[in-house]
Design a protein around this nucleic acid. Sequence first.
DNA 1: GTGCAAACCTGCACCCGATGCAACTTTGCA
DNA 2: TGCAAAGTTGCATCGGGTGCAGGTTTGCAC
Lengths: 209, 209
Amino acid sequence: MEAGAKSAGEPTLRERKKRRTRAAIAEAALELFWEHGFQETTIREVAEAADVAPRTVWSYFPTKEDLVFPDHAELREQLERRLAERAEGATAIDTLREWIAELLADERGYDAKIRQLQLIEREPALRGHERLRQAELEDILAAAVAVDLDVAPDALVPHMVAAATTAALDRLRPPDPADRASRDEALALVDDAMTFVGAGVRGLQHRRR
Amino acid sequence: MEAGAKSAGEPTLRERKKRRTRAAIAEAALELFWEHGFQETTIREVAEAADVAPRTVWSYFPTKEDLVFPDHAELREQLERRLAERAEGATAIDTLREWIAELLADERGYDAKIRQLQLIEREPALRGHERLRQAELEDILAAAVAVDLDVAPDALVPHMVAAATTAALDRLRPPDPADRASRDEALALVDDAMTFVGAGVRGLQHRRR
DNA sequence: GTGCAAACCTGCACCCGATGCAACTTTGCA
DNA sequence: TGCAAAGTTGCATCGGGTGCAGGTTTGCAC
């Protein structure tokens, strides 16, 4: 059992300190990466900016790349929980759409995400990691879709659905830093994806029987 | 202009030596990775096994991960050429299917590919790189699909089509080393993907007007 | 509040991947 | 045969990452 899972009644001092340290490191890292570039910034510099020992940075973030995705674990858990707890009638994609809408509504979170995407855009070295993270979420989504369609978790269709949906979300990356995709556009993207995969699934079901 | 692009009339001695050295390094690397693991094997060991200097390994393969995808550049070029030179009536996906069929027909290439996939399966550290490589091919495919559909290269639909198709190819990864996906199964996968994306595209076009 | 154990932070030594540079060797060609 | 270009190598160096052994802080029972 991990620390901090004590029903979140009230976090202990130790817990609060850890969160603060972690946040400080991530913030310092993002700032330095943004200012001087990912490659150019060393972990030692991040440590100095966050006022901790280099060794401590590594204890919070196993790799340098992880510093760019500080909230990935949280997002992952959120998605898993949402999908697991969705109502009887709601499909996985419906649930995803709802979740996206909520994420987009969070001003600070949205800004941070855009900033993160722009950083990744600028640093090809980060693309691999991003794709890996994406693949994790995709697998979770695919598993839920498989339940919806009543097929095996490793069947073809759920993974095509998940991949197409992820590809749609990938399109919200703004090419021009000034020209941010609006929230409505982002949701329209998801809607198009839903139409696409819905038709795809029906097309395949129809051919099959 | 890169060396070796002299109409391939007859490769010079230098060229042949380079190819041999490159192949020897890749072969030695795959062997060692397979036998002792990717993380556990050092570049120095690969160099020794291939009877070259460590520095030479890095001159052929910029990163350790690249040793696992020795023929990626070639595949990439093949796909680009095929798509560029396809007949008037043939769609991008048709062309892809044809190409896959030919790749599957090559016994040695197929075995090597399966081995590579199993290695990646075993080493999570390689997943990021694989996804990155996949993304490159996906972008090429998406660009061609965009031409087919007469939409912008960065439009949503082509990328969903490409992503779904790639996801299908991803399914040919055999979970059990002994139970290899047969060539027919692999092609059936592509066919299902074609049905899926075809229906998806039509569904979206229909809704749009 | 005292004291103890667990959790956390830190410095140190070390390994390995990766790069720039300056020789040295081999190949291509006049 | 000889010269220039390409290819190979060793060397020095940097930065990411890990294991380990203290030292410090926090939680908690008494």
